[in-house]
Structure formats: C-alpha cells, structure tokens
C-alpha cells in the first residue's frame, strides 16, 4: 500500500527527514512514535503535499503510484487522508457543507458521479451517530469554537465519510479525555479494513491500548531507528526516548 524509500525532505533550508524508509501493507496499522521535533508531523505533511515541504531525495508510492508528483487535492482524491494535529477553522462554512463539497470534489476528480443529497444525508447520519456527533455540530462552521475533542471527532468523521485508502493520524489523541479517546478510537477501529492502511503518529502509548497496531516504529532525527510490535510501545512508555535521541545523534 504505502511505500516510502530513502525519503529526504527539507523545510526552510533545513533537512528534517533524512533517509526515511517505511512500508505499510494494506490492512495494517502502523504506529510512529518518537521524541518531540523528530519529524513526525513533517512526515505527515510531506505525504499530504504541503507547500514548503520539499522532497530532495527518495520516493513515496501509494499502491505503486508516485504521489510526490501530485497536487495536495489530487493526493486526497487518490486516497491520502491526514487527520491534522491542529485542524484549521473555516469561519462561515458549515461543517456539513464542507464535508459535502470535499466528498463531491473527490468523486469528480476520480471521474465518479456526485452523491445525491438523500444518500449523503444518510451517510452523514450514520457516521456522525457512530462518533456521537450531534447534528447541531454539523451546522456550525468548520472547527470554529469546537472543543479539542470535537475537532478530533470531526477529523475522524471526515475520514469516515471520505473513505480514504491511507489514513495518517497526527497526534489525534492529544488533548482528549478518556471518554473522547475511546469514541475516537472506536471510530478509527471501525474503519480498519483489508484494503486500507493506517499510520498513527503518537507521542503516548495510551492511544495504542485502544487502536492496537500491527507494528510500532520509532522515528528520531528524521529516520526510522527501530521497529517492533506493540510491546515496543510499552517499552518506550517505560524508558522514554532518551536512548534514541542519543543513538541517532
């Protein structure tokens, strides 16, 4: 599904990703952990194609397709979804309108028919109920005045509606209380499927109790420095990241 080879990326003249390799097969959930400033968010932006994140070397393919050549919206339509660590506010645009336009834009780009209003409403009702999202929240402007938990649930709702192939979640657990964490995790788990891959970026092991990963990678100084199974997360919780900060130096 996702294949990253020897990826180097520069931000503001500084090399942040320095030869990163990562393979995430379809149907698997991989966690990426690492100290602050390791380059986790940078990786997510590079995958999504944010301006200013320049790839200087290496390749990224999704189901064999080179996504680095694509515009951000084309990547989205090709199935790349990023749940943002800090979702943006869009004043005056109701969440429902935003979701509808996003979905229809993707369908159009893929040459498919737009979804009818009744079908769309049915889909939204079903998905928002799963995430315990009130209809009232869908009428409010995108992320404006949303609590931290609402913003994250909104990200997962968008993911559920857009049905991407590759889901990258950046610190989706940060700022969530235990109830919200459970709701969000249930939402993510419901989306697990044999033809979808997940990259879950987190700083804390806690999230991985709910979303159990197939593999755990440690990212430090722009590289994957260790890979293990879910027990690696527990070990990191115990020992912290000090070891990696040194070895990668």
């Amino acid at each position: 599904m996702l294949s990253i080879k020897n990826l180097h990326a520069v931000v503001d003249g500084q090399e942040i990703l320095r030869g990163l390799n990562l393979e995430v097969p379809a149907g698997e959930v991989h966690a990426i952990m690492g100290p602050n400033g390791a380059g986790k968010s940078t990786l997510s932006y590079v995958l999504a194609g944010k301006a200013g994140y320049e790839v200087t070397k290496g390749s990224v393919t999704l189901n064999g397709e080179n996504i680095l050549e694509m515009q951000p919206d084309e990547r989205a339509s090709a199935g790349v979804f990023l749940a943002f660590q800090y979702p943006m506010e869009i004043p005056g645009v109701p969440t429902l309108t935003f979701l509808r336009q996003a979905l229809n834009s993707q369908l159009r780009t893929r040459g498919e028919d737009e979804m009818s209003t009744p079908d769309f409403m049915r889909l939204i009702r079903e998905k928002s109920a799963e995430l315990k999202i009130e209809q009232d929240m869908l009428k409010r402007a995108v992320n404006v005045g949303f609590s931290g938990g609402e913003k994250k649930r909104n990200e997962v709702l968008q993911m559920a509606v857009l049905q991407p192939k590759l889901c990258v979640l950046d610190e989706t657990d940060s700022g969530l209380d235990i109830d919200a964490l459970r709701i969000v995790s249930d939402g993510v788990n419901a989306l697990r499927s044999p033809d979808r891959a997940f990259v879950i970026i987190t700083h804390y092991q806690r999230l991985l109790d709910y979303i159990v990963p197939d593999k755990v990678h440690v990212l430090s100084k722009g590289r994957i420095v260790r890979t293990g199974d879910k027990d690696l997360a527990l070990e990191l919780e115990d020992k912290g990241y000090a070891e990696f900060e040194e070895t990668a130096a």
Binding site: D73, M88, Q101, L103, L162
Partner: peptide
C-alpha cells in the same frame, strides 16, 4: 492546505473560504 487535503482544488478552496 486543509481544504486541499480534503480534495478541493485551489480555486474551489478559495471560493469556499471567501463564501464563508
């Protein structure tokens, strides 16, 4: 970028934000 990441092209994104 947030809008584009959801699949809107740049012009659609500008139109959406301005309409908002």
């Amino acid at each position: 970028f947030y809008c584009q990441q959801r699949g809107l092209n740049e012009e659609e994104a500008v139109a959406l934000i301005v309409n908002g």
